[in-house]
Computed example of a mutant assay.
Amino acid sequence: MFLLGVGDDGNGRAIVSYGNPDTSKNVSAYVPGLATALDGDFADGTVRRALQTAKGAYKYNHSTAFIVWLGYDAPGFTEVGSTADADKGAPAYRSFMEGIQATNEKENPHITAIGHSYGSLVVGTAAREHGGIPGVDDIVLLGSPGTGAQSASELNVGDGHVFAASAGNDPVSWLPARSGLLGPVPAVLSNMDGDRWFGKDPVSDGFGATRIESGDGPLPMWLSGEGPTPAHSGYFDPDRNPSAANNMAKIVAGRSDLVTTEEGR
């Protein structure tokens, strides 16, 4: 376990890696979402997700490092509908990934950018800049309310290198477009068109990503007793969502050829 960065700016900064990102062939950096801060929940939950994925990837390739990147102020519940925090965080993430590429000792490292929840908007915003995210070969979007893009091609990693997962019981990935929620277009019609709060649904047929198998995930709290949105937080957990966790481990380890997929919606 490596502590790559820590600070008290804003809601706190922390960059933690399982595996050495300078010497590993495969390096991934995961951006967390809503309400993530440098606190007990970060230590108990967010960092655990990194460990779970690192363990899964290790089965496919031992030369793997998995990073959780809290290098920005994730929005709270009152700010999560705005792109402001993603706009601020994206340049910092691009800079960090450029550093990962520069310091890695391998001739051609395999680098993956992963965004969960609002973090997928940070990754999408960074990827849509000219030239994409430095060094990144694959992008994984988990429980995404949209990336700011209308198609996977806007993320600058080439065909077949954008992967998305959306569990059936994850309410965040079903957030309708703003017009569907606030305007005259009913939310159900907005969902049918594949529009989300921050652009096209990454698991829709029209977006053009590879939808990795992630099943339905756990039921909501009042039915499962596992918290308010366990399907949204369960993508990394091999017990809660084994298909999503295993597929993500394969991509992180450079074995995306082994992923199982499901149809877009």
Score class of each variant (00 low, 15 high):
G124L: 06
A245M: 07
T23G: 08
N26K: 09
S179H: 07
N20V: 10
G76F: 04
G131C: 04
P228N: 01
T53F: 08
F236A: 15
A209K: 05
T53E: 11
P134E: 06
A149T: 05
G99E: 13
R196I: 05
N11Y: 07
A92F: 01
A253K: 00
V80R: 02
A29G: 15
A165K: 11
S256T: 02
S243W: 02
P184R: 07
E226N: 08
R211C: 11
H116S: 07
V80P: 03
G45T: 01
A43Y: 14
A249W: 06
E79K: 11
D239C: 04
V136E: 07
M248K: 00
G234H: 01
H62P: 02
G168E: 08
P21V: 14
G227A: 02
R211V: 15
A43S: 14
I15N: 09
T36S: 14
L70M: 12
S190L: 00
G81F: 06
D8R: 10
V31K: 01
S144F: 09
G40L: 05
A209N: 06
P75S: 02
V162L: 06
L70C: 09
P21D: 12
R240L: 13
I114A: 10
A253I: 06
F42G: 04
D85S: 13
T53P: 00
V27Y: 09
T36N: 09
K25H: 13
A244Q: 03
N11D: 05
V185Y: 00
T112M: 10
R240T: 01
V27P: 11
G168M: 04
D159S: 15
